[in-house]
Simulated scan of single mutants.
Amino acid sequence: MTSIRDNELDARREQGPKALVGLSQLALDHMEQGVCVYDAGNRIVLVNQRYLSLFNMSAEIVRVGTSYRDVLAHSVALGNIPAGEVDALYAARLARIAAGQPFRTQQTLASGLVMALELKPLPGGG
């Protein structure tokens, strides 16, 4: 039996590279983990819906092209990061990323949810 979703996926496959990007985003948006990828200039190149929902972030603000600093500022506005800690947090994370050091940390959100974050620098930056 073929579902409507199967038909949608088949149609996207037939549309070529542009459809592949859409299909990739569809897959990312259905992952259980939140994913946000930055380029070497610390701007978002990929973000999924789960990331936005876990952190209660606005898709109008946190989207492709948004800087990491602006994402942190949005997180401060939401109460997920204390305003007095954001500069030190930003500097420390960028230093570890620049050194190519993957690391894990925890963050308690305004909702009380404790998030485990895994940051992995990409080859060539980002």
Rank of each mutant, 00 (worst) to 15 (best):
L109T: 02
Y38E: 03
D29M: 04
G124D: 02
G100N: 01
Y38A: 03
E8K: 14
G65Q: 03
V37I: 06
T66H: 13
L117N: 09
I97N: 01
A88P: 08
R104I: 14
Q101W: 00
P123A: 14
A11Q: 06
A91C: 11
A11C: 03
G16L: 00
V37P: 05
S67Y: 06
N42T: 04
A27H: 04
L9K: 07
P102C: 05
R63I: 07
V64I: 10
A92Y: 05
N80M: 09
G65V: 05
V35Q: 01
N42S: 03
D6K: 02
P17G: 01
Q15L: 14
V45M: 11
A88T: 12
G126H: 04
L54I: 14
M57E: 15
N7W: 12
V35C: 01
Q15A: 12
E32H: 00
R12Y: 04
V86T: 13
L113E: 09
D87K: 13
R69E: 15
I97D: 00
M115V: 10
D6S: 04
Q101H: 02
S3Q: 04
R12G: 00
A27C: 01
N7I: 08
M57V: 11
S3D: 02
H30F: 04
Q101K: 10
G22E: 08
M115E: 03
G100P: 00
A40P: 05
A40R: 15
A59C: 07
A73I: 04
V62C: 12
A99V: 08
A59R: 13
L72D: 06
V45R: 14
R104K: 10
G126C: 03
C36R: 09
L20V: 07
D87A: 07
L72Q: 06
V35H: 00
N42L: 10
S67L: 06
S67E: 13
P123R: 14
D87F: 00
M57I: 00
G22P: 00
V76K: 06
L23R: 01
I81K: 09
R96Y: 13
E8C: 13
E118F: 07
D39H: 09
